[in-house]
Design a protein around this nucleic acid. Structure first.
Length: 485
DNA sequence: ATGTTC
């Protein structure tokens, strides 16, 4: 049992169990801390220590919001705005912009190549590849139109946010490999550009095909196959892979900002209290005018993010081709971890909000019917850090505990300001050097240092011990590109 | 996450 020292209640001070164990790496937050709500947390004992009082408070605030039926914390849980990052929130009638996040449909993608690790071992080869990628993909905050973006017209942009990966003629024109579309989730919400503000379109227009900053990244990694049968089924081989993390840039941010503002105004004008007195926990009913607009808007954000990611993968393929003209690339999967989607839970369709949570649907799930993942479940990629690399999972028998989700990463162990205070730049850079991981800047962003994240092995072990998911393959970094904000 | 403060 984990004790919470110095818990204050009125005049007395006592210790209280913060978590109660339900199974291997499976706990609930003590209902006395959550107004009686049962909030599961997936964590081994080391990870449990990273679930701070503030995360518990945010999880409790979210669970007690009108319309919320379930909140679950994954091992990467850490403080967010409104709801913690690394959580799943289930509703039936309400939609919540907080448990989706500002970066609507932020996603991971996994591009399998047929390059041998030996072919990119030479540092000069990797250095050249970094330069070729930088020529094709804008990195960092703001708008720095890249070659692919410059070919996008206003009409193209409208089609991108309306149809996403189903805009096949457009994608063909941009030389996106259309076979990649089979391995991503294209049936999104009912996207409708007519509800999107001109400001959101203006912000997004210059940014399609760009990476962004913060924790977004592109990494080249080696592969180690753990489950040969599943790896073969997914198309994963022991060759070099390119994984990337990016979202909907200023477009999704603007959409989210507008809904937070509108809903805050609506709550205030009706004299309605914010859940947990936190304005970032505002919500709306799906069957209202604003609910309808949010639904259609999130669809547009998801479509932007998908095409953004397809453009990035196309640019990565083209960068590889400059050195390896015959290289073959196959998109294994592209999956969002910031989204609300309708999914069947039990017998009913619910709104599953994943905020920094990766969907991991099991074999036989209705949404997998007719796909190559029907008999296996789909791949769920969990990046760790530029030192730890990443792991590709598939759902295991207990994935129902998290409504079929795993964490979206290692999760921050310290805030960005704290990281800048306590970490030493020279040591961060030297660690990358020791690991022979090349990066695209003079200094690795210190607030993105592996040391700023939770221990990846503990995070992975939490997933495995809880039997949420099992490992298909593991990947170690060779080089990383980040926006230098 | 983000033209990092309506």
């Amino acid at each position: 049992m984990i004790l919470r020292p110095g818990f204050h209640s009125g005049a007395e001070t006592f210790t209280m169990e913060r978590f109660i164990q339900k199974g291997p790496a499976h706990w609930i937050i003590n209902p006395k801390l959550t107004g009686g709500k049962e909030i599961p947390a997936i964590a081994n004992e080391n990870i449990l220590k990273t679930i701070t009082d503030r995360v518990i408070e945010q999880a409790s605030n979210t669970a007690n919001a009108e319309g919320v039926e379930s909140v679950v914390l994954n091992p990467d849980a850490h403080e967010g705005y409104g709801a913690p990052i690394g959580c799943v929130v289930v509703t039936s009638k309400t939609l919540m912009p907080g448990p989706v996040g500002f970066d609507i449909s932020c996603s991971m993608s996994f591009l399998q190549t047929n390059l041998e690790p030996a072919e990119v071992q030479d540092r000069r080869v990797r250095r050249t590849l970094i330069q070729e990628i930088e020529k094709r993909i804008a990195l960092g905050a703001g708008s720095k139109p890249a070659p692919l973006q410059k070919r996008v017209s206003r009409n193209d942009f409208n089609e991108i946010i309306a149809r996403g990966a189903e805009a096949t003629d457009l994608l063909r024109r941009f030389e996106v490999d259309l076979t990649w579309g089979q391995n991503l989730e294209r049936k999104w919400l009912e996207a409708d550009p007519s509800v999107i503000s001109s400001r959101a379109i203006d912000r997004g227009f210059d940014q399609i095909g760009s990476l962004g900053g913060g924790n977004h990244f592109i990494e080249m990694e080696t592969s180690e196959i753990v489950d040969p049968e599943l790896a073969r089924h997914f198309g994963i081989t022991p060759h070099v892979v390119l994984i990337s993390h990016c979202g909907s840039r200023g477009f999704g941010h603007q959409i989210a900002t507008e809904f937070f503002r509108q809903l805050e105004h609506e709550f205030k004008s009706k004299g309605k209290a914010f859940p947990g007195n936190d304005r970032e926990l505002v919500f709306c009913y799906r069957d209202t005018e604003i609910g309808e607009r949010y639904w259609k808007s999130v669809g547009c954000g998801a479509n932007f993010a998908i095409v953004n990611h397809l453009f990035i993968n196309t640019a990565l393929r083209d960068a590889l081709r400059t050195l390896f003209p015959e290289v073959q690339c196959h998109l294994v999967y592209l999956i969002s971890h910031n989204l609300v989607q309708p999914e069947i839970l039990g017998r009913q369709t619910k709104f599953i909000h994943r905020k920094g949570a990766t969907r991991a649907l099991p074999p036989g799930h209705p949404l997998m019917q007719g796909t190559k993942f029907e008999s296996t479940g789909h791949p769920a990629l969990v990046p760790g850090s530029a030192a730890a690399g990443s792991t590709l999972f598939v759902a295991d028998k207990n994935s129902y505990l998290t409504h079929h989700s795993v964490n979206h990463g290692a999760g921050r162990a310290m805030g960005r300001n704290q990281a800048r205070r306590v970490l030493i730049q020279k040591e961060v850079d030297e660690q990358m050097d020791r690991n022979d991981v090349l990066f695209n800047s003079r200094h690795y962003p210190i607030d993105e240092s592996p040391a700023a994240y939770k221990n990846y092995e503990d995070v992975i072990n939490s997933i495995l011990e809880a039997r949420l998911a099992r490992i298909v393959s593991r990947h170690r970094p060779l080089m990383v590109l980040k926006g230098n904000d």
